[in-house]
Simulated assay, not measured.
Amino acid sequence: MPTPRTLLAIPVSLALLCLSPVPSRAHPATTTNALVTLLVTRGGAPAAALLAQDGTGPRGNRTGTDQTRAGTTHVPTGTVYAQAATVYAQARTVYAQAGTGITRADHFRAGSITKTFIATVILQLAAEHRLSLSDTVERHLPGLVHGAGNDGRALTLRSLLTHTSGLYDFTALTGGTIPVSPTEAVRMALTHPPADRGRFSYSNTNYVLLGLVIRQVTGNSYATEAERRIIAPLGLTGTSFPGSRTALPTPHGRAYATDGSDVTALDPRVAGAAGELVTTLTDLNRFYSALLGGGLLPSRRLREMLNTRTAHGSYGMGLFPVKLPCGITVWGHNGRISGSYVRTAATVDGRHVLTFRVNTSEVADPSLEPALLAAEFCPRTS
């Protein structure tokens, strides 16, 4: 459940990216695959996998590719407010893996990528006029946020979505390893004074509170609402909110902490609405493609989701931008939970999307993530 990394500050060498001085839309067959291998050899992961989908048309011959069928995601009336997004049109899928113990179909823990799902549900409720992003936290959760200088009357739902509430991150106290209920997580955070309100300060407590708001407004858990509004309509058959179930669905590989211990079995209540999600590579690509393609939110709400002014350019609502060295900006989120690090990024239209994962808590070499994104999204030579 990490803070978004400042990727622009990390130099990406031309040698690593195998770039040539003459730009073009063709993609070399080995660049992305080679970088996935580096996640293991240099990044310290037991295994790594990547799935990229480019709906802009064929991308040349690449090893490990398979042609996918064009399809349209149709979401029931009441969930989609404009036309449903066409996903994976004329697309080519690229799959790469390195190390052992990971397959393309595996289920894994997605950590803070959960936040994009939660933000989507909140924005759908706003579009239905069941809440306003300007509502105070006190209005929906009366009496909950108070103490040590914290005051729910002074905080809006927008401040939770954009991480500008100043609320302390409860996982700084639990280490992300102790299962707690949502109210326990909030009460732990409220023993600490807030940071400056209005300043971007990433805190998992914000999204735990949004999960409670969803229940208050709908009468259902955030998991039930996300399943009804996102998971079922998009056919995300490998995606679930496991609650307190410690086992991953099959198939799955093993997950390892940074000290090498096996943490495949994990109580998802260590993260809750801030990072509970279990999913697959295919499902994450489909979700972000549909979301950014306009299939889950009306255009006004999607623009709000992508607006980073409140967080001074650092974060939208459940999404954050990264400007690559070639000038292209990609949108998405990362997720870290014990035994899993995941990153999804996509072009703003959702037509080109990439997800990579490793089966440990972090990548040892931080330069590899921006290198992967640049290798996938920046134009290059044949």
Rank of each mutant, 00 (worst) to 15 (best):
N150E: 09
I337G: 03
V270Q: 00
A195K: 05
M305A: 13
E184M: 06
T381L: 12
A105C: 01
T177V: 08
A195L: 06
V348N: 11
P370Q: 03
G260S: 06
F170Q: 01
R109S: 03
S338Q: 15
N307V: 06
Y95H: 07
V330G: 14
S24F: 12
H129S: 05
P23M: 15
G327W: 02
R380V: 10
T30R: 05
L209I: 06
L16H: 07
L173E: 15
S382M: 06
T205W: 03
T72N: 06
L281K: 08
L306Y: 02
D267A: 12
M317D: 07
A346N: 03
K323H: 01
F356I: 00
Y168C: 15
T264I: 08
G332R: 02
T3R: 14
I337C: 01
R62E: 12
P21Y: 10
R25V: 14
L157S: 05
R351Y: 10
G57P: 04
G43R: 13
A172P: 00
T164D: 14
R109K: 08
D169S: 09
P298T: 00
L50I: 00
T171A: 08
P21C: 09
Q97Y: 09
L190D: 07
D267E: 03
S340P: 01
L248N: 05
T329S: 15
T41G: 11
M188W: 12
T162G: 14
Q124E: 04
F108K: 10
R199F: 03
P23Y: 13
L302I: 12
G327A: 08
N359T: 03
T264S: 12
G71Q: 06
T218W: 09
R25W: 09
Y95K: 13
L266Y: 01
N204E: 12
L266W: 04
T6Y: 13
I178A: 04
V36I: 15
P325N: 15
N334I: 00
I118S: 09
I122V: 05
S361G: 03
R301L: 09
F287H: 10
S367A: 13
G175M: 13
T3Y: 00
G235D: 05
H192I: 07
T93E: 10
G335P: 08
S338M: 06
L167M: 04
R254D: 15
L297Q: 05
A271C: 09
S201K: 07
G44E: 07
F287A: 10
R245H: 10
H129V: 05
T6Q: 10
H107W: 02
N204Q: 07
T162N: 15
V208T: 14
R104N: 10
Q83I: 13
A110R: 01
D196T: 13
S261V: 12
A364V: 12
V278W: 01
R380I: 08
A195I: 09
S289N: 02
F356A: 05
A48D: 09
C378P: 05
L234K: 02
T310M: 06
E376F: 14
L284Y: 03
F377M: 07
F200W: 07
L155D: 14
N206A: 04
P249I: 13
T156R: 08
D365W: 02
A110W: 02
T164N: 10
L155T: 04
T120Q: 13
A34T: 13
E304F: 01
I102L: 15
T237F: 12
K323T: 15
A247M: 08
A172R: 14
N220I: 00
T355R: 03
G350P: 09
N285A: 04
H312R: 11
R357F: 02
S299H: 09
A345K: 08
G166T: 04
G295H: 01
H107D: 11
